[in-house]
Nucleic acid binder design. Structure first.
Lengths: 180, 180
DNA sequence: CTTACCATGTAAGGCGTTACATGATTCA
DNA sequence: TGAATCATGTAACGCCTTACATGGTAAG
């Protein structure tokens, strides 16, 4: 109990797969989770300290490649907490799409400006989709001893389905805007 | 300049269409913008005070239906600020999908639990889609004297395209999870 | 040798929600 | 008469990002 902070849950979730350093956690958020969740070092490191203090994770200092690393491992208490959180229904799925906001008020700026926003959005999506396809391919072909792949694949498929929808909408939006 | 707060931009955007009260602004966020943006009274009312103080909006006190209302109107300065913001490329489109998070770590809870998360998500989406279809129908048939409808329609179409993608993914995810 | 990446953290401050506080009106 | 909706605001607090601060290693 106590925390209920999402950042704690994400970190515990990642640690439930394998022990990780703060840096590695950040990397995973920037790759595997980037299209539905993200966090900065400024929230990750303090959260790791809290989790350790509360007994949800343990810290191991060790040297690797000459560098001093702090690796965190989930405890049984941490695992129990994670599972309790997983049992609860998701409270909130939110998005803040600035692009959509700018389009909503687009008549103030005109169709050429709106088109630029759509194009920028399209470019971003196009840039990220190949990564998702690669994830999908890798997950479908690789071995999966601990059964995590199927769940990971689920989220990748979500990314692909929505990103493809974004692209269809971009094409449609561009047509509509050119007619204004 | 100064602020750069998104909440200010959303409010100015809404005021650029018509004068509104804080309460009405909140209502619009809960209906027209809910699938890509939202805000609480605790951020709306202070923002309105700030905007007024900075000369981006003016406030009119008046009684209507026995109630004392504060109606806000955008100023020329406010309009200029809004337009300057609209010219800038969108900086950030973010989502925090707790449902996806719970699925990503789903192996900790098992497929039945994951299924419940997918079903809950599906139900929420199914509940909100009809509203979007209605918006679309209304926008396509109604008169549009000030040219705002086309832009509004753009965002509604975005909502529909993505929500339909969500539903396809839900069906797919349910099949995958039943096979585990 | 210098750029990119690995690696860990802190401090200040921004942004926003939740809960509180209040009260009128409308409709069943 | 009670519930829902209209209507406006404040205070406390939580969460998170940005910027700062530091330094080692690997690769070109």
């Amino acid at each position: 109990m106590a925390s209920e902070k999402k950042i704690d849950c994400v970190i515990l979730g990642l640690l439930s797969h394998e022990p990780l350093t703060g840096y590695e956690i950040k990397k995973r958020m920037d790759t595997a989770l980037y299209y539905f969740w993200n966090a900065s070092y400024g929230s990750i490191y303090p959260a790791l300290a809290d989790l350790t203090e509360q007994g949800f994770a343990t810290r191991q200092s060790h040297c690797s490649g000459g560098r001093n690393k702090q690796t965190y491992t989930i405890t049984e208490t941490g695992r129990a907490y994670l599972q309790q959180w997983l049992r609860q229904p998701a409270q909130r799925d939110e998005q803040r799409l600035e692009t959509l906001l700018k389009l909503f008020f687009g008549n103030q700026g005109g169709s050429a400006q709106a088109l630029r926003h759509v194009e920028a959005f399209e470019e971003k999506v196009r840039g990220e989709l190949p990564q998702l396809y690669e994830f999908q391919k890798a997950l479908e072909s690789a071995q999966d001893p601990d059964g995590t792949h199927a769940y990971y694949l689920l989220t990748v498929k979500f990314g692909i389905e929505t990103y493809e929808a974004y692209l269809r909408w971009c094409a449609d939006a561009q047509k509509l805007l050119e007619d204004i």
